[in-house]
Design a protein around this nucleic acid. Structure first.
Length: 409
DNA sequence: TCTGGGGTCCTAGGACCC
DNA sequence: TCTGGGGTCCTAGGACCC
């Protein structure tokens, strides 16, 4: 746990070495920072037919708009809002600069997404001051360099730091001393705990467990019977502020394992149709597009996958998955596509209206570890060559220069 | 009014093997 | 002549996070 306190630092310094930094309304803040005309205007980032809200500034939030909300509803709640399409290239650029800033403070930066990270600063206090001083300095730097604000939770564990940043919002710092953890937690609703979502919250409420204090005073076995062995134990620990999870230096898996750390475990793509469809030709074409997108990413990352999973979401939003595991991992577009179509056809759907399809590969391994067995007459080698040729042309002339023939229309 | 897209992890049942 | 126990892999579903 916490290392022994050096004589020249205060106990408060080493007791709260974990920072959770969370940008305030990140996408919305980035989208409006160069648009002074939008000052004082409610802003929603998102859009598209059938889309959801990705981010909303505080003016829009005051009207009831929240992220994840269907755009149709958000527009009705806040008709005066300016709706802006997301520009992920810009978000990624800003995010990279911010994360670089964090790494100048400590190498122990765990990137959770484009807009948040954990920092373990216990090795930086001698050089940079107390965690709170580090937090304030980092906030000032981000504001000066990027023109956006962030909030920082400072605590002795990652979970408490995460919760503290929520209490710090917007544009603030919240310090959670270990001695005050249970006092802070126990009055809160169970849904406030990191890892307790809507379903688990409802389940616990039905059992009469409303506050985090209720969870703390419920026997572990009772919790485990209700929510499973793992989560039951986890929730009981968290309710008492017990959390030994360490900050692990890494980039978010969603943006490639550039910094080392754990490699991706799966890669996938999915898309909601503009209109529900029961047309097999349309669906198969979409499976090919998605497969091509995923396998291209895999070849860039130098990985191959052994399990191919398709997702089918019906008009009524019920969602099913079907997976097949191959004898050996692949990154070959035509192989993955073939399995995806076989899985789809095996469903035997007749006139079912389909809203979304997806393709995902799991069990990823570095491509050089795949020992492809040579079978006479096997065509995979040819397809693999074709993929690589297409990748080269795509790099030179752009992604759309080479597409599978059935996607050309 | 409906409900994106990218992921991770857990559970549970059946197959299979020792 | 009763129904052993793991351990691992595969599949399907579900919850959760941003």
């Amino acid at each position: 746990m916490t290392p022994a306190t050096p004589p020249d630092t205060t106990p408060a310094t080493t007791a709260t070495p974990i920072l959770h930094v969370d940008m305030d309304a990140f996408y919305a803040s980035v989208a409006v920072r160069d648009r002074p005309d939008l000052l004082g205007v409610p802003v929603i980032v998102g859009g598209g037919y059938r889309g959801v809200v990705l981010s909303a500034n505080y003016l829009a939030r005051h009207a009831g708009v929240g992220s994840g909300m269907p755009m149709t509803r958000a527009r009705r709640l806040c008709p005066g809002a300016e709706v802006i399409s997301p520009d992920f290239d810009t978000f990624t650029t800003v995010s990279s600069s911010v994360m670089e800033n964090f790494r100048r403070i400590t190498p122990l930066v765990e990137v959770l997404s484009l807009d948040e990270a954990f920092l373990d600063v216990r090795g930086s206090t001698r050089r940079l001051g107390t965690p709170v001083e580090i937090a304030e300095r980092l906030r000032a730097t981000i504001h000066d360099e990027q023109g956006i604000t962030c909030s920082v939770g400072v605590a002795g564990s990652v979970t408490m730091a995460k919760m503290a940043s929520r209490w710090a919002k917007p544009d603030g710092v919240f310090v959670c001393a270990p001695s005050s953890v249970t006092t802070l937690l126990h009055p809160l609703d169970v849904g406030e705990l990191y890892g307790v979502g809507e379903k688990t919250s409802e389940l616990l409420h039905r059992l009469g467990l409303v506050t985090i204090g209720d969870i703390a005073h419920t026997p572990v076995r009772t919790l485990q019977r209700a929510v499973g062995d793992h989560l039951g134990r986890h929730l009981h620990d968290l309710a008492w502020g017990v959390d030994d999870r360490q900050v692990v230096a890494r980039n978010s898996s969603a943006f490639g394992a550039v910094m080392g750390g754990d490699p991706d475990k799966s890669m996938g793509a999915s898309e909601t149709f503009g209109h529900d469809t029961d047309d097999r030709a349309v669906i198969v074409r979409e499976l090919l597009r998605l497969t091509d997108r995923v396998t291209t990413r895999m070849r860039v990352a130098g990985v191959a996958g052994r399990t191919i999973t398709i997702t089918v979401r019906f008009a009524d939003f019920t969602t099913i998955t079907r997976s097949r595991t191959l004898g050996e991992a692949t990154d070959v577009t035509q192989e993955v596509f073939g399995e995806a179509v076989r899985s789809y056809d095996a469903l035997g759907l007749q006139r079912a209206r389909i809203r979304l399809v997806g393709v995902r590969l799991e069990g990823l391994v570095p491509r050089e570890l795949v020992h492809r067995q040579l079978i006479l007459g096997q065509r995979e080698h040819g397809w693999s060559e074709a993929d690589r040729a297409a990748d080269r042309i795509g790099r030179r002339f752009g992604r759309d220069a080479v597409r599978p023939a059935s996607l050309l229309t």
